[in-house]
């Protein structure tokens, strides 16, 4: 099992190195500081949202409302900062993340306790949360100048502590925040009782119930975590893009998040995968996305290439997993 996980992360690393090398050969400036920053700034939004989704998919669920959660939480944070600047960036961010948790709890409640199938519940809230985003904002966007400079600086400046360290000094706060979130999720999923319960539930729901794992609570919390991830990503969105538009924010983001989690080695059949793989797959998607632009690959080709990469990744993964299973079977 351990071997298999390592293999997945290894293959992702190989893919990243391969794409980066090809990109550098075709366009040496792909390795420039400007471009590395560009990739680093692309990843955090996706990574933070994907961490929550990871827990959900390990429990054999899915949350397609995460883009709308990001939208509603991000919009609310922006509105609070515009109308109540005295809250401060930290205060508003906490409210945004808390709102994300609440929205996730609504999903989780329906799924864990009322036994609504995850795709149905979250398909429903996908529409509801998006509608609410329009309603709370009155259909109007919040503009850059209405948001505090502190929030923008998250995407501009790094921690003052590191100001003297060359190169590292230019890595902005959002990247450090994402790193922290990834570390915490990895630790949480690996070393806490809750994390082990999530894997046990995903691996075999019936056995998990028999072993006395609080199945409903574990499921519920997975969606709350997903909501927290979405809410946090919403706050980061406001920092990165400045303009928060009710139609634009997080629209269609769920597909990117789910793609990142699946490429990261989390099986939709539950029970496997984890934060390191998903983090690497977010980096892979960032590299691919930026490479498509920097290598001037015609705009019209980008979507097809994206789909192809996704397809190849999941087929290769399944083949790897199958051969690994076979070998494990022979060993026993």
């Amino acid at each position: 099992m351990k071997k298999l996980l390592e293999r997945r992360e290894l293959s992702l690393l190989v893919a990243i190195v391969l794409i980066v090398s090809v990109a550098i050969i075709l366009q040496p400036r792909f390795a420039s500081e400007q471009n590395i920053r560009s990739i680093l700034l692309w990843v955090p939004l996706l990574a933070v949202a994907a961490m929550g989704q990871t827990a959900v998919i390990i429990t054999r669920g899915i949350d397609v409302s995460v883009g709308s959660i990001l939208g509603l939480a991000g919009m609310t944070t922006a509105i609070l900062l515009r109308d109540y600047p005295q809250l401060g960036v930290g205060g508003a961010a906490i409210i945004g993340i808390g709102l994300g948790a609440l929205l996730g709890a609504i999903n989780g409640g329906m799924i864990a306790f009322a036994k609504v199938p995850p795709i149905v519940a979250t398909l429903g809230t996908l529409g509801i949360y998006r509608g609410l985003t329009f309603i709370v904002s009155g259909g109007r966007q919040v503009d850059d100048y209405q948001l505090p400079k502190d929030l923008m600086n998250w995407s501009l400046e790094g921690p003052a502590l590191l100001a003297k360290v060359p190169f590292v000094n230019s890595i902005p706060w959002v990247v450090w925040i994402a790193l922290l979130v990834m570390m915490l999720s990895h630790l949480g999923m690996t070393y806490t009782r809750y994390g082990r319960d999530v894997y046990a539930l995903g691996g075999n729901p019936d056995a998990a119930a028999l072993r006395g794992i609080p199945v409903n609570f574990v499921t519920f919390m997975a969606y709350v975590l997903c909501g927290i991830g979405g809410g946090f990503a919403g706050v980061l969105y406001a920092s990165r893009y400045g303009t928060v538009n009710p139609a634009g924010i997080g629209n269609g983001f769920e597909l990117q998040v789910i793609a990142a989690v699946v490429i990261g080695g989390v099986s939709v059949f539950g029970g496997t995968g984890g934060a390191p793989g998903v983090a690497l797959s977010c980096l892979l998607l960032g590299v691919v996305n930026v490479a498509l632009s920097v290598l001037a690959i015609a705009d019209t080709w980008q979507m097809a290439i994206y789909g192809l990469v996704l397809l190849v990744a999941i087929i290769a993964d399944e083949r790897f997993a199958r051969s690994a299973r076979k070998r494990a079977g022979e060993a026993v």
């Binding site: 560009s38 692309w42 893009y241 538009n245 996305n289 930026v290 632009s293 920097v294």
Partner: peptide, 15 residues
């Protein structure tokens, strides 16, 4: 689109 415009603009600076 916000994200695409920003990525393309950054790619211009890189290229």
């Amino acid at each position: 689109k916000d994200q695409k415009s920003l990525t393309e603009a950054e790619a211009l600076l890189t290229k």
